[in-house]
Simulated scan of single mutants.
Amino acid sequence: MGYRAETLFRLFKAAAPTLLGVLGVLVLAAPIRLFEGVAPTPILPLVIVFFWSVYGPDYLPPLSVFMIGLLQDLLTGGPLGLWPAVYLVTQYIVMSQRAYFLGREQKVVWLGFALASAGAGLILWLVMSLMSGVLLPVRHLLLQFAATVLIYPLFGIAFGELHRRVLVEA
């Protein structure tokens, strides 16, 4: 491999999780509704932040997490700073428990993701309820987070392969 190709490959390796996060935000913000709107769109950036905070925190620094959240706020019309705060809190808590998750069965990591998702959902619900001045209904939020938790194993496998084959072995 030539110098230029090697440099581009190293740049791709460093940027891959951030690019995945941006792609996740674009999918989330796109006017696509699964099963004609019956199934809520999973929060893919949360999956990405969780996975890379466990298995490759050096590949997804806090500045990237902040920018992913800010992009989500801008594209979805949410209050500026809410998603960056949610993602950064999630990243901090997950990284503090990283040693526990490493080497565990995927079922344990999936349960950890479910707990992290519940925490993120609670933060979102509390902030939005405070901003609106009333306790907001949680039905849609619960459905969206349930969809997010259910898709985690698929993305965990895909990201695990990317991590192993491209970022670690290459």
Rank of each mutant, 00 (worst) to 15 (best):
Y3F: 06
Y3N: 10
L8T: 03
R10E: 15
F12R: 03
F12L: 15
A14H: 11
A14P: 04
A16S: 07
A16Q: 00
T18Y: 15
L19F: 07
L20N: 09
V22P: 00
L23A: 14
L23Y: 12
L26R: 06
V27F: 05
V27G: 01
A29P: 01
A30H: 03
P31R: 13
I32Y: 09
R33H: 12
R33Y: 10
F35W: 14
V38Q: 11
A39R: 14
P45H: 00
P45C: 05
P45Y: 03
L46E: 04
F50M: 03
V54E: 07
Y55L: 05
P57Y: 04
Y59F: 12
L60W: 07
L60D: 04
P61K: 08
P61L: 00
L63F: 06
S64D: 14
V65T: 13
F66S: 11
I68V: 15
G69Q: 13
L74K: 02
G78P: 05
G78I: 02
G78A: 02
P79Q: 05
P79F: 13
L80Q: 12
G81H: 01
G81Q: 08
A85V: 12
V89D: 04
T90E: 08
I93R: 04
I93T: 12
S96R: 15
Q97S: 03
A99Y: 01
L102K: 08
G103Q: 11
R104A: 10
R104Y: 05
E105Y: 01
V108N: 06
V108Y: 02
W110C: 11
W110F: 06
F113T: 04
F113R: 11
L115E: 07
S117D: 04
A118T: 15
A118D: 06
L122S: 00
I123V: 14
W125K: 07
W125E: 08
L130W: 12
L130H: 02
M131A: 13
S132A: 12
G133W: 13
L136W: 10
L136A: 10
L142S: 11
A147E: 06
I151W: 07
Y152A: 06
L154W: 06
F155G: 09
I157Q: 08
I157M: 13
F159K: 03
F159W: 02
R164I: 07
R165N: 11
R165D: 13
R165E: 12
V166M: 10
V168F: 05
E169A: 15
A170S: 08
